[in-house]
Nucleic acid binder design. Structure first.
Lengths: 157, 157
DNA sequence: CGATAATAGTTTACATGGAAACATTTTCCA
DNA sequence: TGGAAAATGTTTCCATGTAAACTATTATCG
């Protein structure tokens, strides 16, 4: 039915120059690949990785402040508001305004939310274990370097 | 004027669990950091990295087809159209429809476009050389691993 | 040849995400 | 105290980017 070789082989090679050494470019391309892998894997679930990660954080930190979640995930407050509204509309979490500080919002998973987190844990944590050009050792190296780059220190060997 | 320590220190630590080992999460966080570094560096220029990379590719491949540029940069066709329209409106490039295939669009830089590429080359290629937690050797390792991940093979040792 | 399929790019209609301004509440001091 | 400043979310508006449908052109092959 399809002849991908014909479609993918480019008659006109494109010179990229030192763009191929640009860290910013490489990170963006990596992001694209990971995103594609997601849609080929758990994409049929209706929560995107960012939304799942919010549920994940709340699951580990019941009653956490909304702003704290946003800060740790580098999600902007304005975006976080909409995201939380969606998750609340799906009955995955509840918002509670504590008397101790009535500006803030504290988040807790509903039973349905916790069930979703538990049920799809493997899917959301392994979709990036796609076929790629790296060995398991190299992936571990890469993961460790990225952790260090963004300032996560993992003491383990 | 500012007391960043007060603002940044979090009274409520947030547990991330194995999210810190998730490759997808790490890539996204890295992307955010690189983006921040861009805005603290060349952000005052009015072309974003993606737009500059388009000019860069055209500079290295005069007369390249628009779709080829899009494919190599993983930019979707619909987005590419708007992007090219903006760059054309700024008089950075010209679109030409060849008689050999009047469906396609071939792109060439104007003198102003070439000047922009030349003038800001260092800025756009080094903004990610920001202060981070990695040594030069580690950055080189990371770069090489990312290249391999996305399928760029650089033969050099 | 000529109908059908494939290709290239554009348009439209929408989803995503962010900046700035805002409302509310709390903190900080003078 | 009480008024200014800061903190927390939300709202509004806008920029970015995508999918699907569409136009125009070229290729396919019966």
């Amino acid at each position: 039915m399809n002849k991908p070789s014909d479609a993918l082989i480019t008659d006109e090679p494109v010179e990229m120059g030192q763009l191929e050494d640009s860290f910013g470019f490489l990170v963006r391309m990596t992001q694209v690949r990971v995103f594609e892998a997601f849609f080929n894997g758990v994409g049929h679930f209706d929560l995107k990785p960012g939304e799942y990660s919010v549920l994940w954080i709340i699951s580990l930190n019941p009653g956490v402040r909304q702003g704290e979640v946003a800060r740790r995930l580098s999600i902007k407050p304005a975006h976080m508001t909409k995201l939380i509204q969606r998750l609340e509309a799906r009955d995955f979490l509840t918002r509670q305004i504590p008397d101790s500080d009535r500006r803030s919002v504290r988040l807790t998973l509903t039973a349905a939310g916790q069930t979703f987190v538990d049920t799809h844990k493997d899917a959301y944590f392994t979709y990036y274990e796609m076929e790629n050009c790296l060995s398991a050792v190299e992936m571990a190296q890469l993961t460790k370097l990225l952790q260090k780059f963004i300032g996560i220190e993992k003491g383990r060997s």
